[in-house]
Simulated scan of single mutants.
Amino acid sequence: MHADDLMPGDTPLRLIDEQGSGHPHEHYAFPSAELLREGYGRLVLGRRLNDQADALVRQGRLAVYPSSHGQEACEVAAAMVLGEQDWLFPTYRDSVAVVSRGVDPFEAFLLLRGDWHSGYDPNEYRVAPQATPLATQLLHAVGFAHAARLRGEDTVVVAMCGDGATSEGDFHEALNFAAVFHLPVVFLVQNNGYAISVPLSRQTAAPSLAHKGVGYGMRGRLVDGNDLAALLAVLGEAVTEAREGGGPTLVEAITYRMKSHTNADDATRYRTAAEVEPWIARDPLLRLRTWLTAEGALTDADDAEFRAHAESVAGDLRARIMTDAEPQPLDLFAYVYAEQTPQLREQADLLAAELAAESRTAEEVAR
């Protein structure tokens, strides 16, 4: 691969600007209006779920929520470029990507309520459990991709992370391994400006995070993370190249975290309102809605239908998450090993006996 092919552009690729005007590119094909209309519906749903999760935190129904408000275009695009056979490896902030991949919203949000096992079956949806430690999922992603290729499977992996994760050793190890073994992995870095309170300027001196790819011998691509059209074009090409044996790509999407890191964070301690203000106009939903409307691909009735669907999904999530879970103590032993060890069977039998004894005692007292 020639060195010039590895380098990202000087500026992020943009196909739809902040005013909603389209700008065709000489290299990247402009996504169809039909595809972008589908993506807009997913953006509307993602925004509504972000807002609903914020409310559920305030009501004490979710323990914590790292909102992706303002980053929904990255989330939706990551899911849309994948085939049914492919896998997504998300972070803790990527609940909207998980839902956009097809996971039931209730199952996707159970992790944040504190339930076991991330709430969904990774094999059913081909979505790995959401990772809270920074960058650990990147190692899992490249290992999974390596194993899939050894098995002869047609699998591409999209591994998501934030700019803070690029300062971790796991990031280096994952990219180096993926490049050396020419694995079908697309690394999507959502550069939202901060690793909690640490700005990007304190994390790297590189011209961009996408430039880091050349050091590993993989392509680096820089894209406007609030432009769904550009994201679909760049990530779509990266997935295609990976599937055709072209190896991994590092994609940096420039976006912004509009809300605090989580509900436990106060973003006003490290950034000003004046810094946040310009990003309001760069909202990925407003940008895409303006373009679709101008193209005649979205009517007011269509928009209302998308929003009604999003409200219905949010309402269903709210109703189900408000229901208290019935504890199942024996689950402590059911999901540790595929085949229980003798020690675990002994402990499980002991607990089952104690639970049965408590039940009999309760029945006797009731009589």
Rank of each mutant, 00 (worst) to 15 (best):
V158F: 10
V127P: 11
Q85W: 01
A348Y: 10
P327R: 05
Q130C: 07
R93I: 07
L351P: 09
A3D: 13
P129Q: 14
R307A: 12
L228M: 05
V103S: 02
A264E: 09
G220H: 13
T240Q: 13
H23C: 05
D86V: 10
Q19A: 12
Q19H: 09
A264L: 07
H27Y: 07
D266G: 02
L49E: 03
D224I: 00
A29M: 05
A274K: 14
A273N: 03
D303M: 15
T136A: 06
A73V: 07
F177R: 10
G41D: 10
G41A: 10
K212H: 14
G245N: 08
A334Q: 15
D4N: 14
F109W: 06
W291C: 01
N226T: 11
V57S: 00
A253S: 09
S68A: 14
L88W: 11
E72Q: 07
G193W: 00
C74F: 07
D94P: 01
V276L: 14
S32M: 08
H182N: 15
I254C: 12
A334Y: 13
A141V: 11
L292S: 01
F181Q: 03
R48S: 03
T132F: 14
T91A: 08
A147M: 00
I321W: 05
D316F: 08
P66T: 12
P24R: 03
H182W: 07
F30T: 11
G225K: 00
A238F: 12
D94C: 14
D5M: 10
N176I: 03
L288V: 06
G22C: 06
E339T: 11
D163T: 04
H309T: 10
L139I: 06
Q130E: 11
A242C: 01
A264C: 02
